[in-house]
Design a protein around this nucleic acid. Structure first.
Length: 286
DNA sequence: GCCCAGGAGTGTG
DNA sequence: CACACTCATGGG
């Protein structure tokens, strides 16, 4: 069976939001809609003017809420953008084309594992690693579609098994992380403010400054977090003349962009990739 | 073949 | 604190 629902969400650009590397499991379909697994649902999203059409298999009464939470429907995007524009004329120009780009909210565990895999790999490869893990360890939703593997299931995976999933040197980090972490730990982390959360995430094997900030932002919804990868280093150098350590760049961003630094980061990230040759298309094939 | 990737861990100055 | 080096591997 299938559940169909609608969601009014403005502004929203579904392609910018789901295709910009915040999340790795949504795929564009030929008709312009996007499809991906959300918890135990296979969801298809189609933009119809101001309305978002939701189709989900197997479906259920909570699907609409699932999508609403994932797209952070509670965010006042206009207020956030006005705040950033008032703070920084440089980013103001970059926002104009990105009014519908929203930060997403991922499941905490899915986000932690996904961005641990994302170290020193390009986005198509990250997506493939996640699909391989989901196929091997995730609960089946539909033909060829598997839910993201739970922590409980991942704790049973051996190092060699993970290595055979194409994780490379990340296999030992993932293995150590799964061994260390409990479901209760993640529940406890949900209660922490940004700085404390960041410190605890950094303590996990395979989690450094950048991954901790990505997980804080996309997994735990800490909008003040400002992850800095190679693309952001380029952006901060190109637009603001800023160079230096993670700590230094992070301090600059926090001071410059304030409590919505996470949104600022996403606008800068998108612009930097679009600015680079061959950088705009994160899904180059199919 | 070559280059690089939403970096982290470890050792050294 | 700052660098330098290694770590496995596949997509472009």
């Amino acid at each position: 069976m299938t559940t169909t629902a609608h969601l009014l969400l403005e502004p929203l650009d579904i392609a910018q939001t789901l295709g910009c590397g915040q999340t790795f499991r949504w795929r564009p379909l030929p008709d312009g809609s996007w499809q991906g697994p959300l918890m135990d649902q296979l969801v298809t999203l189609s933009q119809r003017g101001p309305k978002l059409l939701i189709e989900a298999v197997p479906g259920g009464p909570t699907v609409r809420r699932l999508v609403s939470d994932h797209l952070r429907a509670q965010d006042d995007i206009l207020a956030i953008q006005l705040d950033l524009i008032a703070r920084d004329p440089v980013i103001a120009r970059g926002i104009r084309e990105l009014r519908g780009l929203r930060i997403v909210k991922l499941d905490e565990w899915e986000c932690l594992l996904s961005f641990t895999l994302a170290t020193y790999a390009n986005i198509p490869r990250i997506a493939k690693m996640i699909e391989t893990l989901a196929t091997r360890f995730g609960k089946r939703i539909n033909d060829g579609i598997f839910a993201f593997p739970t922590l409980t299931r991942m704790k049973t995976a051996s190092r060699s098994e993970l290595l055979r999933c194409g994780l490379g040197y990340r296999a030992k980090y993932v293995h150590a992380m799964c061994k260390r972490l409990s479901v209760a730990d993640i529940e406890r982390l949900k209660l922490l403010p940004y700085e404390e959360l960041r410190t605890e995430l950094r303590d996990l094997p395979g989690v450094g400054d950048k991954v901790a900030d990505c997980v804080a932002l996309f997994g735990f919804g800490k909008l003040e977090s400002f992850p800095i990868d190679v693309w952001m280093e380029r952006s901060l150098r190109r637009l603001y003349g800023q160079v230096g350590s993670y700590r230094k760049l992070s301090a600059f961003a926090r001071d410059r962009f304030g409590k919505y630094a996470g949104y600022a980061q996403e606008y800068l990230y998108y612009n930097e990739r679009a600015h680079a040759p061959n950088g705009a298309c994160l899904f180059s094939e199919q």
